[in-house]
Nucleic acid binder design. Structure first.
Lengths: 347, 347
DNA sequence: CACCCAGTGGGAAACGTTACCCATGGGCGC
DNA sequence: GCGCCCATGGGTAACGTTTCCCACTGGGTG
């Protein structure tokens, strides 16, 4: 069977004709612009309803705004990002802005491609979540369109930032484990080689925070960092390496830099025939639904993704309204959520 | 510090001037259209590279195409959807099309809003994943823009569909459990009240398939369905209800309609002090990363999300190329992935 | 030698919307 | 009573691209 013929779209001209006014008048009503009397408003709105008119965003973008916010997500699988997204959509849902997501496809290349695509599609503003791009590129992006960077430290006059204090989060974990009597607390980090990103990326800050906190607790000698990656497989490899350490070199607690990493670590520990938390404690980061899941019950750090998203959306709206206001950095504090994968150190 | 002044975007006019040709010529080169000599092509391409020109999708959309595909995802949290998305982006990545996601925000209302937003933003085609909308609405959407519906049964001349055979999937689970000696196999389903959707939604088909398979195995007497919802909490409630059954009414195996449901069920079973799979077997559906996670190791049904996505993208490209070709229905077969949450029935 | 056609290039009008500015008319201050 | 200003409405030119069609060239054909 052949599909039915597509109908022509209702345009502003149709509305104007139907309401017996000019297109300019309709446009004014649409944008709540100055210069439309209440009667005019009513007449136009009725015509809009009767015809089922909806403005064409692309055409709007040519002169004015598209009323669209683009969000670049580096990895849809990471269960932390939906929280951020919720905060964004929630803040935007009673504005006239619509959120569209660009799937970052992992990797700097794919991320750049998606970001360009969002710009080319006339987004009024961009929220980049944990971007890998260089600062120079971020500045370029921000010069093309109002931009908020989420989850990265380091500031620029060109864009606003919202981030959680990862150093503080790491300190919370180390403090918690130390209070439970652990001394040999190891950390699985995401390997970062690019020197310019080194200080800005959350993973580097967490590793840094871990080292600082260990020293603060007089555990400098016990600092033990394994570099893999923030993936389940990275956690698995990292934990395997830690478990190979002999006797008093083997850690009694593992601080994984992300919940997915903790997942991999738990898998490796289970495979090794060890028990959590009796033989070894494990803590993650992000407080994903996975961590909250009863049978897992992973101690984790809550980043308040919803709050991050809310702030990002708010800042973006502000910046769209005034591109010249000075840039803002919002830093939020994480909280520790102790669960059943951490307990008193053995012996 | 004030952000730097934004630069004007490079347009096709700039390219034309720089290459000393007409804008028409540049446009032809951009679209590989007929009527541009090799020399012209080379000259224009060089100008494009030198100026770093990228076409403005919104402006293109006004006359031609935007080279953008919109994907409506009802729930980013469901770990099954990223697989589908991967299949889509993978198929599209060496075309000139870009994928943008519309977050469905759960619920028919939000879904409708996002779908409209995608249409208004000039998408060349739409992929709707497991939409809740009525058939009438789907037909309307499809009449506005080429559309592929994923994960819903029932066909229409207006759109193509790609779906997994849920009846078959349910049969795989029941067959597996029956072969392990289970007789009292219960099912936790997602309650569906809307009669028009009843036959089309995957959840209904799974419940149906469960009943058919139970009868086929001579277990008609043991059919036991609890209606909650496809959420973790729904699984928790459903399992609690099942565990309250006394003696020989209590099931020895639970077929949860989705992995998230199985998560909730596992939580309830653990809380009740029972052991999986010794006391009770549990199977899920979707084969998410959660199911594959070692310490969980949930028996599940794999829907080949990647294949679904691939097919959806392929069909959509075909339909964009020819809006008049008859509609196509692709049905894929699921496979069972037995893991450690299912074992021989007790006694 | 007139004619035609294929190949190539460009001019101009769309596409749907908004920004800018001007025209009109009535009320108000002086 | 005269001029001024504000409130209201509309005309028109953008915005960046594609599509439609016409013009020109040169070579082959009748």
């Amino acid at each position: 069977m052949e599909p039915p013929a597509p109908r022509r779209r209702v345009t502003i001209v149709d509305v104007a004709r139907h309401a017996q006014v000019s297109t300019t008048a309709v446009s004014k009503v649409l944008r709540n612009a100055y210069g439309a009397s209440p009667e005019m408003q009513a007449k136009v709105r009725r015509a809009i309803d009767e015809l089922g008119y909806r403005p064409h965003a692309g055409a709007r973008g040519l002169r004015g705004k598209t009323y669209t916010i683009g969000v670049m997500l580096p990895d849809i699988r990471n269960p932390f990002f939906p929280d951020v997204l919720d905060g964004i959509t929630h803040t935007l849902q009673d504005t006239e802005y619509q959120v569209l997501l660009g799937p970052g496809d992992c990797g700097e290349k794919g991320e750049a491609r998606v970001t360009e695509a969002l710009i080319d599609r006339g987004m009024d503003g961009l929220i980049l979540v944990a971007p890998l791009a260089s600062r120079k590129r971020l500045d370029e992006v921000a010069s093309a369109v109002p931009t908020v960077i989420v989850g990265r430290h380091g500031s620029s006059p060109a864009y606003d930032t919202v981030a959680d204090d990862d150093v503080e989060g790491a300190a919370l974990v180390v403090g918690h484990l130390a209070a439970l009597g652990h001394r040999r607390i190891a950390h699985i980090e995401h390997l970062e080689t690019d020197p310019t990103r080194l200080a800005e990326m959350p993973n580097a800050r967490r590793a840094d925070g871990y080292r600082q906190a260990m020293r603060a607790h007089g555990l400098e000698e016990c600092i033990d960092v394994v570099s893999t990656s923030y993936t389940q497989e990275g956690g698995y490899r990292g934990a395997k390496e830690l478990l190979e350490r002999q006797g008093t070199h083997r850690p009694t607690a593992v601080f994984a830099g992300a919940d997915v990493v903790a997942m991999g670590a738990l898998e490796a520990i289970t495979e090794a025939g060890l028990s959590v938390p009796d033989d070894i404690s494990v803590a993650g980061y992000d407080n994903t639904t996975f961590a909250a899941f009863g049978p897992v019950s992973l101690t984790s750090v809550d980043q308040a993704g919803h709050e991050i998203g809310r702030n990002a959306a708010r800042l973006l709206l502000e910046r769209i309204a005034d591109r010249h206001r000075p840039s803002v950095q919002v830093r939020l504090s994480p909280t520790l959520v102790p669960r059943r994968t951490t307990a008193r150190a053995p012996e």
